[in-house]
Amino acid sequence: MKQYAILLMMLGLTTAISAQQQTIHLWPGNVPGETTAKQAAQVTADGSNNVKRLTDVTDPILEVFPAAAGNNNGNAVIICPGGGYNILAINLEGYEIAAWLNKLGYTAFVLQYRVPKKEAGALQDAQRAIRIVRSRAAEWGIQPGNIGMMGFSAGGSLTARASTLYNVNAYTPVDRADSLSARPAFGVLIYPAYLDKGENRSLTPELKPDAQTPSMFLFATSDDFYGNSALVIAGALRDAKALVELHFYAKGGHGYGLRTGNPAAEVWPPLLEKWLKATTGKL
């Protein structure tokens, strides 16, 4: 049974990769704040748990996974893989998520943001990614106002930052795309991390939610070392009168993506599918 599940997962990943049609380099010239020459991301030697880990991202890119023409619902999701701002779990929390979203009719974009330890650069990359997708939305048959962001672990942190700091000019504009809003239409945080770095594990001071913060879906578990992050950001969003839906389960741990065999991994996808349908229907 386990071998069958792995085969299905691999087939789903193959489908996602075969559907990929474009790679978009975010920065046509110099990458803001980057001192290392542009190069392709490096694959680490650690391939444990069938996770492909990328590091040394100096040339941030978007990998495009279009929804099938007959199944395109006009919405898009930019996916931010996790990895502690050190690596990107690019298949577990990137390509496999894109394949799942494609089946639901969403065009997916997997973001290779800068790592390791380049949190400021990662926010620049996230803002730039939203603007590029918005500026070219017609290419993929999506509505420019229906572009959300989804993140796992550190990618959840980045999604929360992009969703609350969209009015902050994180970089100097480079072209017409940068005249567009960097506000995502919605945010999805799956087992997010680093959102409770304030005093006594309160909200990370950088985050500034308000009533205009996009609607958010949160999922985490109580046995996750970073589980407090979801509780803290949910409370802050509620206090700010922003729309938020929180699911907090007992077990699941951290870093499970949507692979079978983990109870949490089997619970959040149908919950999110329902939430996405309701949320995008109101955009």
Rank of each mutant, 00 (worst) to 15 (best):
F219W: 04
V232P: 01
H25P: 02
K38G: 02
V188N: 03
S222H: 08
P32I: 07
R134L: 05
L26Y: 03
A182G: 14
P173S: 11
Y106N: 10
E266C: 04
V267H: 13
A16G: 15
L218D: 05
P205G: 11
R131Y: 09
A211R: 12
T204D: 15
A37D: 02
A76P: 10
G84H: 11
T55K: 11
L123H: 07
Q112R: 15
T159W: 00
E199K: 15
L62H: 05
F186A: 15
A170Y: 07
I130N: 11
K282M: 13
N146L: 12
W268T: 06
I97F: 01
D46P: 00
K52I: 01
N73V: 13
E93D: 01
G252C: 08
G281M: 10
V57Y: 10
A242P: 08
A162M: 05
Y106V: 07
I142R: 06
D175P: 15
L276M: 15
G156V: 02
D178M: 15
I17V: 14
Y113P: 06
Y113V: 08
A76C: 07
P144H: 12
A138D: 13
L203T: 03
I78N: 02
T35Y: 01
G74S: 13
W100F: 06
S48N: 01
N200K: 14
N102K: 10
S179H: 12
K117P: 06
G105C: 09
Q112S: 08
I61K: 09
I78V: 09
T44I: 02
V57Q: 06
N167I: 00
A182S: 14
S179R: 11
A211P: 01
G141S: 08
I190T: 05
G187K: 04
R136N: 13
M9C: 06
A98K: 06
P32G: 12
Q212A: 14
T213F: 08
Y249L: 12
E206H: 12
L158K: 01
S157G: 12
G145V: 03
A68W: 00
R201T: 11
Y4L: 07
K38N: 04
L180C: 12
L101Y: 12
I190C: 07
S215I: 08
W275M: 12
V133Q: 05
G145D: 13
F219I: 00
